[in-house]
């Protein structure tokens, strides 16, 4: 399982960085999205893929019968997803405004601030 996930994470990072280096604003945004998915999946994998049961103790029990899943990576990923949702939504609005004001979605054309 780890191997499969490692390959998926690698593909997400590779695809994300590739898209970020393209000149198109929309591809930039999709690239950023892929990158944050890759990071989330990395947390998930690095946190350990163990346990099939939820980490909730049965009534009256003091110990888990089988090793439960680690809840913390999931909480972290949830938070990260929420944040990347907000950031992506903002970036979409910003990129749309930029496209309307500058008149192009080609990053290479945006040289106003380069000198």
């Amino acid at each position: 399982m780890e191997v499969v996930l490692a390959i998926v994470i690698g593909a997400l990072y590779g695809g994300g960085l590739y898209l970020m280096m393209r000149r198109n604003l929309i591809q930039l945004i999709i690239g950023l999205g892929l990158l944050s998915h890759g990071a989330n999946l990395l947390i998930f994998t690095a946190g350990g893929l163990r346990g099939d049961v939820a980490p909730i103790l049965a009534e009256g029990a003091t110990k888990f019968a089988v090793t439960p899943a680690d809840p913390l990576p999931q909480a972290l990923i949830l938070t990260a997803i929420v944040i990347s949702f907000a950031v992506t939504a903002f970036a979409l609005v910003l990129f749309l405004r930029t496209y309307q004001t500058v008149g192009t979605d080609d990053v290479d054309e945006m040289k106003e601030t380069d000198t």
């Binding site: 944050s36 890759g38 990395l42 998930f44 690095a46």
Partner: peptide
């Protein structure tokens, strides 16, 4: 994204 990845590995 880099911070997040670092956090994942550290955890």
């Amino acid at each position: 994204a880099l911070v997040l990845a670092g956090i994942g590995v550290l955890y």
